[in-house]
Amino acid sequence: MRARDFGLASCHTCGLVVKLPAVGHVHCPRCASPVHSRKVNSLSTSWALLLAAMIAYVPANLFPVMSVVSFGKRQSDTILSGVIYLFVHGDWPLALIVFVASVLVPLLKMIALTYLLVTVQRKSYLRHQQRTRLYRIVELVGRWSMVDIFVVALLAALVNIGNLATIEPGAGAIAFTTVVVLTMLAAANFDPRLIWDHQGEK
């Protein structure tokens, strides 16, 4: 029994179940926000944001996220070389966490969102529960990718000791933040109810 079958919809903001009119749209009587059965233009908005994130992912990995300038010498680090540095010099549990947060998560997140969008568009009627769970995980872990940006910001704030050593954030940091923000927005615009909209049809 699904809300849509009864012409009902749950308000996205406050959760009140509202009767939808046959034509036009309705505002929630409790919180006054517009009520829709499904998020408006969910698929195209998600696709647009996801594709933009994929494009930004290239410079995010190619350009340095930060450079250490020490005695006139400059050493630049990309996301990946920063993780490798942690593996070599730091302790490996932390390196593993950073590897997961800043390399695995963004990549798997984009693959997962693509999979979700494609299966919804092909009206797949398989594995609804697993796909919903996948969506929930994508929504939950996405923010952890920001860790590398915070590290760069903290290092830039702390290491600024004249010509002894300075840390400069690089262009890669902007591209990487763009990837994280865009994938978070893409996940927020995806409507998991679409996964369940094709269960009867074959």
Binding site: L86, V98, R143, V159
Partner: peptide
């Protein structure tokens, strides 16, 4: 709101420096 993520960033910055 990414306070927890920022904390992980602090730990990494600690190790790096």
């Amino acid at each position: 709101v990414m306070l927890d993520v920022f904390m992980l960033g602090v730990l990494v910055a600690f190790v790096k420096l």
